[in-house]
């Protein structure tokens, strides 16, 4: 494998920062009730989305989960439209109809976040079918969690994709928790990647806090899929820094676990250190990226705040028609 270019690594750092800061801000606005309903922050898991989405092209597809902001941003989503959607505004990605769990963007091949755990997995089969039928070498990345891996639909979908050799890359973000249920207590054999063997497809276990390792593994699986060999299953071991949602204190976790993960396996801190040590970037340059990111998120908040609400009359006329 070729050595990763500096530019690509800096680009990945920018995306990691963009997702982290965006998510921190959404938690703040959730606590101020500017954002309501359900919000599932992706903080701590950014390296999976960034590494994976950097390994595909713009015309490739992704399908996401209820914890989907990171995937959307990694694929290039517009922060203004995302924030406006979270604020329930008419200018949001879903015109205020969807909120956090339904952001989709056809231009970006982003086939939607999903409020149903496992709901997107079979849809990736269909996108895989169309990629295969149109025969232009497109692929789809299907993100899901350790919780969804225990849903029956996982088996149906991976089996069918493997039988039809569809270009689907299944990326399981094993962040250890499905709300309160730890994957150590819910995944028999504790080896989701190992299930690949049963389907006769490649399976990989990667450190999901290492953006380069994720990137390189997804790239390998994408290449395999583009050549018509079919799907792969990647289990990225990662960690959810906050609870299931901003109001969840995560009291079900063993004492010290989160602190340990945050101090040792923070994908953003570790990647910054790596790039500085390898002299790919300076601290001053990182500060600049941070400032620029804050500015863009400020602008997204301003856009969301100043945007109009969806019109009730219009909604009612649509319902009646």
């Amino acid at each position: 494998m070729e050595k990763l270019s500096k530019e690509l690594q800096v680009l990945m750092l920018k995306k990691l920062i963009e997702i982290r800061r965006f998510e921190e801000r959404t938690v703040q606005y959730y606590q101020r009730s500017k954002i309501w309903g359900y919000l599932h922050p992706y903080i701590g898991e950014e390296a999976v989305a960034v590494g994976a989405c950097t390994a595909i092209k713009k015309e490739d597809y992704i399908i996401s989960t209820h914890r989907g902001h990171g995937h959307a941003i990694a694929k290039g989503a517009d922060l203004n439209k995302m924030m406006a959607e979270l604020f329930g505004k008419a200018t949001g990605y879903c015109k205020g109809r969807g909120g956090s769990m339904h952001i989709a963007d056809t231009e970006l091949g982003m086939l939607g976040a999903n409020g149903i755990v496992g709901g997107g997995i079979p849809i990736s089969v269909g996108a895989g079918l169309s990629c295969k039928m149109e025969n232009k070498g497109r692929v789809i990345l299907c993100f899901f969690g350790d919780g969804a891996a225990n849903n029956g639909v996982f088996h149906e979908s991976v089996n069918m994709s493997a039988m039809f050799k569809l270009p689907v890359i299944y990326i399981c973000e094993n962040n250890l928790y499905a709300i309160s249920m730890c994957s150590r207590d819910s995944v028999a054999g504790n080896d989701i990647a190992g299930r690949a063997k049963g389907y006769g497809i490649p399976g990989y276990k990667v450190d999901g806090s290492d953006v380069i390792e994720v990137f390189e593994t997804v790239e390998k699986a994408v290449d395999y899929a583009r050549k018509g060999n079919g799907p792969s299953l990647i289990e990225a071991s990662t960690y959810i820094f906050l609870g299931h949602h901003p109001n969840d204190p995560a009291a079900y976790r063993p004492k010290g676990e989160a602190e340990h993960e945050k101090s040792k396996r923070d994908c953003l801190t570790n990647f910054k250190t790596k790039l500085i040590n390898e002299k790919i970037i300076t601290e001053a340059q990182i500060d600049e990226i941070e400032k620029d990111t804050e500015k863009r998120i400020d602008a997204a908040v301003e856009f969301a705040e100043s945007s109009p609400e969806p019109e009730l009359e219009k909604f009612l006329s649509e319902v009646m028609s």
Binding site: Y61, I63, L111, G112, I121, P122, I123, S124, V125, G126, A127, G128, L129, S130, C131, M133, E134, I140, G152, V153, E156, S157, N159, M160, M163, F164
Partner: peptide, 28 residues
């Protein structure tokens, strides 16, 4: 077999397969 796709007994994957293909330009 590309246009008459005979599947395993997997109702969720059949309908998910139809939805995903519909989302990406086909008419299943």
């Amino acid at each position: 077999p590309e246009r008459v796709i005979n599947t395993p007994i997997s109702e969720q994957a059949i309908l998910g397969g139809a939805i995903g293909a519909a989302l990406t330009g086909y008419r299943p």
